[in-house]
Amino acid sequence: MMAEQMVVNTTLPMAGRRLDRDVNRLLASGYRTTVDDNMANLDVCLEGPLGSAYEGGVWTVNVTMPQEYPLKAPRIRFVTKILHPNIEFITGLVCMNVLKQAWSSSYDLVNIFETFLPQLLRHPNPHDSLNHRAAAIMKHSEKLFREHVILCMKTYAMPAILPTRQLVEEGLEKRSSDLSLSDLLTDSDDDEDGNGNNAHIALPGSS
């Protein structure tokens, strides 16, 4: 059972106190968060950073805390679908190489949601990808990649639910054959470097 409020337990061992403190700091920062009873799993609402292709979207992000926290980085997974080279579309897992390189035991959960994830969304890296099709589209055309990100975001991650047809048509200038939802979800194999004839189809899948 998930609880939205936690009470600091000063009888916890040192590692447990650190986790307890960090969870409470995240809650105090205003993030909509649900936490399980032993603080091993959290679901946190993340808004897309201003100025990025993800601006306006809201994602639920699951954080699994390792026993070795804070020496070991948490496992981060996007529950809400997102189109991003460094995030696997089906599982929502964030590339651990990216997180491990940035992680330090001095960081906490607030750093993840105020710094790490916003930077990841602002600066996708197609050269260290989990979603190879998204990476291929970004290498082929950053403008087209942004348009596909917005289409996927409006389909899955908008705070207000609108009819899919309205979302697809709203503000997109590409022809429907380039940006239709059926194309976006087609399971074809594009050239990973974005050189194929179908490079305009930005599949969410990572294979």
Score class of each variant (00 low, 15 high):
54 Y>G: 12
184 L>C: 09
10 T>I: 03
21 R>V: 08
150 I>E: 13
37 D>F: 11
54 Y>S: 11
70 P>Y: 12
10 T>K: 07
97 N>A: 10
141 S>D: 08
100 K>N: 14
200 H>L: 00
206 S>L: 06
129 S>I: 00
91 T>S: 15
156 Y>A: 02
176 S>W: 11
35 V>M: 01
42 L>P: 03
108 D>S: 06
7 V>A: 13
138 M>G: 01
73 A>M: 11
34 T>V: 12
179 L>V: 13
188 S>E: 07
156 Y>K: 02
52 S>E: 11
49 P>C: 04
130 L>G: 07
174 K>L: 11
138 M>N: 01
126 P>T: 07
24 N>I: 12
50 L>K: 15
14 M>L: 14
119 Q>P: 02
165 R>N: 15
180 S>V: 06
53 A>R: 10
93 L>Q: 10
50 L>P: 05
203 L>S: 13
51 G>W: 10
168 V>D: 11
74 P>G: 05
33 T>R: 05
91 T>G: 06
54 Y>L: 08
12 L>V: 01
81 K>Y: 00
126 P>N: 09
89 F>L: 03
81 K>F: 01
70 P>I: 11
75 R>P: 05
27 L>N: 01
102 A>Y: 13
58 V>I: 13
95 C>G: 12
125 N>A: 00
173 E>L: 11
189 D>Y: 13
92 G>I: 02
